[in-house]
Design a protein around this nucleic acid. Structure first.
Length: 438
RNA sequence: GGCCCCGUCGUCCAGAGGCCUAGGACGCUGGGUUUUCAACCCAGAAACGCCGGUUCGAAUCCGGUCGGGGCUGCCA
């Protein structure tokens, strides 16, 4: 069994293509088959090295590997169609000689026989039947002597011994053309499987106008690869038993192309985000720390100081359970970083009051007198002060939060103060007290 | 227009004639917890497009209809 994904390097890896690649990969893995990645770059004008690199990198990021194909090699060269133009021309000429194709203004068209029906069985759609009278004679070699997708893709599928062609439904109606070429070349007809398309929220084929449609974009948004893998699996397929959170081994153990739904699925970013949150929460603390430090350094474009790392490590457990993507991280921990500390003016104004000032002054003095500065002592001190001064929790804590973290939204207060450390906390409290009359 | 595909809550998925007064998840609403925001817990609203037929019995089978989508390129 041999399957393949054949992306065109005319854009960044599209989520729809990623899903198609994923299903091919899963089926190959599930059956001990071979998974091939080839590059369909017959459109020389729009194909670029950068896009090819992006596509391969993102396939790997998703956890997909391939047994044969571009960059990993195999029996068929570099698996790029641009390297095989001679082969396609040879086939086009062969068809010409056999009188199965003809010249048309410099291009070569395949001669579609009349009054025939082309039948094949589709893994997800069952028995398919097309009349050749509905198929036009189609170009296989352009007048600039380059092959079209129909020719190149079909020749490759034959030459590489692909046994199951699983691709997007948008190519379903081109399948008769491919079968016709295969028949003309006396090739064994492989199995076909046309996967449902991915839609945008408006029910149209997912495309750029729906916003981000590339795997790379979501990766940059802080989506975890495992979450993306998991979410993509859920589009058009499910492992059964209402199980929704699973890893690749589980998916492989359950996957079957024949069980893929025939109807198109709408890409729901909200659910992806939720799933991502689940994955962030289930990440081991060590890995979360590692990934987070890296993420923050990327945001800052510099390495973190050791003192910063010490502070961050203290707050990570609290942050891990409240972010949805890795990109939410920075905003949560910014107050712990040695950058200019900015208090949100609006937030401060909304919590500042004479009472708040009294409270901040009181806890500041108590903090100064403290020997140990740990979580429990911080909490005890702050709560006791609330009682002593008869100040409402919300008034005291929210003013302290803004004074220390700069905003009304932050990780838990005591943890934040603990992570910040005694000296800085005292300094920030002093700063806010001084600002009362502003 | 022609050809083709598809049709269960807003969305994703379960359901392969009786187990369905249709189940799970996201989202949404309400409540709980609470120092903010989250997370978490509980509850709730929410769907078999429609019409026929087959059958003792249909979300499940068949036909039609309506709706959505894809293709209709010397793009892939």
């Amino acid at each position: 069994m041999k399957l393949r994904i054949a992306p065109s390097p005319t854009g960044s890896l599209h989520i729809g293509n990623a899903r198609t690649a994923l299903f091919n990969w899963l089926y190959a893995k599930a059956n001990g088959g071979t998974f091939v990645v080839r590059i369909d770059d017959t459109d020389i004008e729009r194909s670029t090295e950068e896009f090819q690199k992006d596509i391969l990198e993102n396939l790997r990021w998703l956890g997909l590997d391939w047994d044969e194909g571009v960059e990993v090699g195999g029996e068929h060269g570099d698996y790029k169609q641009s390297s095989r133009f001679d082969r396609y021309r040879e086939v086009a000429n062969e068809l010409l000689e056999k009188d199965l194709a003809y010249k048309d203004d410099g291009a070569i068209r395949f001669k579609v026989p009349s009054d025939r029906s082309i039948e094949f069985k589709d893994f997800v759609r069952g028995d398919m039947s097309f009349e050749t009278s509905d198929v036009e004679d189609f170009v296989i070699l352009r007048s600039d002597n380059t092959p079209t997708y129909h020719l190149a893709s079909t020749v490759d599928d034959i030459d590489y011994g692909i046994t199951i062609i699983a691709r997007g439904e948008d190519i379903l109606s081109s399948t008769p053309k491919h079968i016709l070429i295969m028949e003309a070349l006396d090739a064994v007809i492989p199995n076909f499987c046309h996967l449902p398309l991915l839609f945008g929220p408006d029910g149209k084929k997912l495309s750029k106008r729906h916003g981000d449609t590339s795997v790379e974009a979501f990766r940059q948004k802080g989506i975890l690869n495992d979450a993306m893998f998991n979410y993509l699996c859920l589009l058009g397929w499910s492992p059964g038993d209402d199980i929704e959170l699973f890893d690749s081994d589980f998916a492989i153990s359950k996957f079957d192309l024949n069980k893929v739904l025939p109807n198109s699925a709408t890409f729901d970013e909200k659910k992806l985000l939720w799933l991502n949150g689940q994955y962030i929460r289930s990440t081991s603390p060590n890995k979360f720390e590692e990934d987070s430090l890296q993420n923050i350094e990327n945001q800052l474009s510099r390495e973190l100081f050791n003192e910063e790392k010490d502070r961050l490590l203290k707050i990570f457990p609290s942050v891990q359970e409240r972010i949805e993507t890795m990109n939410d991280l920075f905003g949560q921990v910014q107050f712990l970083i040695d950058e200019p500390f900015i208090v949100d003016k609006e937030d401060w104004d909304s919590v500042n009051s004479e009472e708040a000032q009294k409270y901040l002054d009181a806890i500041r003095n108590k903090f100064i007198a403290l020997g140990d500065f740990n979580l429990n002592i911080i909490e005890d001190t702050m709560r006791a002060t609330l009682e002593e001064l008869d100040i409402k929790t919300k008034v005291g804590f929210q003013s302290a939060r803004v004074a220390v973290t700069g905003t009304k939204i932050s990780p838990p207060l005591f943890e934040s103060i603990f992570a910040l450390g005694k000296e800085t906390t005292i300094a920030r409290l002093a700063e806010s007290i001084k600002n009362y009359n502003n």
